[in-house]
Simulated scan of single mutants.
Amino acid sequence: MFRDRGGGEAHAHPDPNRTRRDRPLVSGGVALFLTLLMTDALSSTVGKLLVYHPPVTQALAAFLSILPQSLNKTLVLAVLFSILLAFSRMQRDNELKAVLASGIRPLPILLFLSSPVAAAFCSAQS
């Protein structure tokens, strides 16, 4: 239980609408990055179509073969974006101050949370 400034006790209740409010931001960021990746893939595919003149089905298959790699990169960045969103929320709710007051340094937490992102990024590059 927490004490409010008036001396009474207050309960910490999580905001049930928080994820509902953040969902459009996360979805929009993922959609924007995926759109940018697919626009780049489309421009390079169209350039090759103009040079080699393949059949339409073969060109569509080549374009769709790029899609899994683009989704992989997008999901890696979505995880990184969600970690940054979580840290900003922790800062806004003064939870980072509580972590610092308890003697835990933020760098080990950041390294622990960023290690899956680094592993996924390395696997996406190969």
Rank of each mutant, 00 (worst) to 15 (best):
Q125T: 08
Q91C: 03
P24W: 00
I66F: 13
S126M: 14
M90F: 10
N17P: 08
G29P: 06
L80P: 04
I104C: 09
V79H: 02
T35M: 09
P54M: 08
L80W: 01
L60Y: 01
M38Q: 09
N72C: 09
P54H: 12
S70G: 12
F81Q: 08
Q69L: 15
P108G: 10
L25V: 10
D93N: 06
A119G: 10
M90E: 05
L75W: 00
L77E: 00
Q125N: 14
T19F: 13
P14I: 09
N17A: 13
L60D: 03
V76C: 04
I104P: 01
S123E: 15
M38N: 03
R20D: 00
R18V: 01
P14Q: 13
L67G: 04
D15W: 04
Q58T: 09
T57P: 03
G28R: 01
M1T: 13
H53C: 09
R20K: 08
P108Q: 07
P106F: 01
L100E: 12
R5C: 09
K48R: 15
A120N: 08
L42Y: 11
D93E: 03
L77C: 10
V76F: 02
L25T: 10
S27G: 07
V76D: 00
P54T: 08
D4K: 08
A101Q: 06
L100F: 08
A101H: 04
D4G: 15
T57Q: 11
N72I: 12
G8W: 13
S43P: 02
R5F: 06
H53D: 14
H11N: 14
E95A: 06
R18H: 12
P106H: 00
P24N: 01
R18A: 09
T35W: 10
A31T: 02
L80N: 07
P116L: 05
F2K: 10
L49W: 11
V99R: 03
P54G: 05
L64K: 02
F87K: 02
R92A: 11
A10D: 11
V117L: 03
L96C: 02
T57D: 13
R105N: 13
P24S: 06
L111F: 11
G6E: 10
F63N: 07
